[in-house]
Simulated scan of single mutants.
Amino acid sequence: MTTTISAGDSTDTRAGVGLRLGGLRRAFGSTTALDGLDLDIAPGELVALLGPSGCGKTTALRIIAGFETADTGELLMGGEDVTGLPANKRDIGMVFQSYSLFPNMTAAENVAYGLRVRKASKAERAARAAELLELVGLPGRDKHYPHQLSGGQQQRVALARALAVSPRVLLLDEPLSALDAKVRLQLREEIRRLQLELGITTVFVTHDQEEALSMADRVAVMKDGRLEQCAPPNELYERPATPFVAEFVGTMNRLPGVVREGGTVEVLGRRLPVTTGQGAHPEAGRTVDVLLRPEGLQVHTGEQDGGEHATVRVATFLGSTTRLHLTTDSGAEAKADLPSWEAGSLTPGTRCTLTAHDNPVLVEERDNPVLAEKTAS
């Protein structure tokens, strides 16, 4: 993907470059931050690094930026090995969580700072700053100082500053976490629009799954310094490779089941096909936890055959859907999402029958599995 952006009388044509993180390892004393991270990012792609605190996502971003050095492994940018290249030689733009604007500079001066360091002319700096401030939705704010801008406006200035030098790669380190919900939603849409318009390869670090799923071409879920799965948002949600991914991305139920012959599992009175993800297929007769999304459950009023009887404990109205919190007669807890028009009669205390849609499910063996004949009726 190639983008042409004019600044004054100059034209800058850039193509997004690919990134390769090959076997990156980084330890801080006895703590392993990255444990052999392998990840390929295509030119012009936006990849979100998603995971809990301490999973290694920020360390990976800092290694790409050149602020940290990997103990082992390599970093390729556009096919070039930049592993040992200092940060100021990598042609990377970075936006931080804390904005990091110079308080004694106006918005325009902040945006133009990188160009000033690169000895661009005053006219070129002014033209580029004005262009980018308009691009991020801040025309007329060029003479405002950071303390005169809202948090969302400051982050837009920080984004414009990162883009001013036309970097080959843009890095975003949880840039929206300090903003309120409405501004966060607006700015994530703006960032995505700009990224697509400019065609710039972007790596976005976040612990917010909604941000990752709504913005990224692919989401890389990390745990304990390793990559659990990297896939487009819909695949990550619908076909998680591991139980960790399944539970970290979206809401997931864990319901008891028994593995049967033919690659199926018996749960809620039905046999469902099993998808193994990255794990081994449990042998027949093992008790397992069956992972089911709330929308993968069916709830029928009254005690019917062909499912498990349950009681509605809480009904939470969410607009077009209602989330039911249920307890089965065997003691299992479950959440089910139904269209609100369908859930109207399922008030707290209602007896019902719980079953599942006939879709492949991910299973995980329990710590102390028992043979099916001890539990099957």
Results as ranks from 00 to 15, higher is better:
residue 1 M to S: 13
residue 2 T to M: 09
residue 3 T to H: 13
residue 5 I to E: 10
residue 11 T to V: 15
residue 17 V to D: 06
residue 19 L to R: 06
residue 20 R to F: 00
residue 21 L to Q: 05
residue 22 G to A: 15
residue 26 R to M: 09
residue 36 G to Q: 08
residue 37 L to S: 05
residue 39 L to T: 04
residue 39 L to M: 03
residue 40 D to M: 02
residue 40 D to S: 08
residue 42 A to C: 05
residue 43 P to R: 03
residue 48 A to E: 02
residue 49 L to E: 00
residue 51 G to R: 01
residue 56 G to W: 01
residue 59 T to H: 06
residue 62 R to I: 01
residue 62 R to H: 10
residue 64 I to G: 05
residue 69 T to N: 13
residue 73 G to D: 11
residue 73 G to P: 12
residue 74 E to K: 10
residue 77 M to I: 11
residue 90 R to M: 05
residue 93 G to M: 04
residue 94 M to N: 06
residue 96 F to T: 03
residue 96 F to K: 03
residue 99 Y to K: 13
residue 99 Y to I: 13
residue 99 Y to V: 14
residue 102 F to W: 09
residue 107 A to G: 02
residue 116 R to D: 06
residue 119 K to W: 04
residue 123 A to V: 05
residue 126 A to R: 02
residue 131 E to V: 01
residue 131 E to A: 01
residue 135 L to I: 03
residue 135 L to H: 02
residue 137 G to P: 00
residue 140 G to F: 01
residue 141 R to M: 10
residue 147 H to N: 14
residue 149 L to I: 15
residue 150 S to E: 06
residue 155 Q to R: 07
residue 158 A to K: 03
residue 160 A to Q: 05
residue 160 A to P: 07
residue 162 A to E: 09
residue 169 V to Q: 11
residue 170 L to N: 04
residue 174 E to P: 04
residue 176 L to T: 07
residue 177 S to P: 11
residue 177 S to Q: 08
residue 177 S to W: 03
residue 182 K to Q: 14
residue 183 V to C: 05
residue 184 R to C: 09
residue 188 R to D: 04
residue 192 R to E: 05
residue 195 Q to I: 07
residue 195 Q to F: 00
residue 196 L to E: 09
residue 198 L to K: 03
residue 198 L to R: 03
residue 201 T to W: 00
residue 202 T to P: 01
residue 203 V to F: 01
residue 203 V to W: 01
residue 205 V to I: 02
residue 208 D to G: 04
residue 208 D to A: 03
residue 213 L to W: 01
residue 215 M to R: 05
residue 217 D to L: 01
residue 221 V to L: 07
residue 223 K to T: 02
residue 224 D to S: 12
residue 226 R to Q: 13
residue 229 Q to T: 08
residue 231 A to R: 03
residue 234 N to H: 14
residue 236 L to M: 03
residue 238 E to H: 10
residue 240 P to C: 06
residue 244 F to A: 00
residue 246 A to D: 04
residue 246 A to G: 02
residue 251 T to F: 11
residue 252 M to E: 04
residue 253 N to W: 12
residue 254 R to A: 12
residue 263 G to N: 06
residue 265 V to K: 11
residue 267 V to W: 09
residue 269 G to S: 08
residue 269 G to L: 08
residue 271 R to D: 14
residue 272 L to I: 09
residue 276 T to L: 11
residue 278 Q to S: 14
residue 280 A to I: 02
residue 295 E to C: 03
residue 300 H to N: 12
residue 301 T to F: 06
residue 302 G to L: 12
residue 313 R to P: 10
residue 315 A to H: 10
residue 317 F to I: 13
residue 321 T to W: 15
residue 323 R to E: 15
residue 326 L to V: 12
residue 327 T to V: 15
residue 328 T to F: 15
residue 337 D to T: 12
residue 338 L to F: 10
residue 339 P to G: 07
residue 340 S to P: 13
residue 342 E to Y: 04
residue 344 G to W: 04
residue 357 H to T: 10
residue 357 H to I: 09
residue 358 D to W: 00
residue 358 D to Q: 13
residue 359 N to D: 14
residue 360 P to I: 05
residue 361 V to T: 07
residue 362 L to I: 06
residue 368 N to F: 11
residue 369 P to E: 08
residue 371 L to K: 09
residue 373 E to D: 13
residue 373 E to W: 10
residue 373 E to M: 07
residue 375 T to H: 11
residue 376 A to S: 11
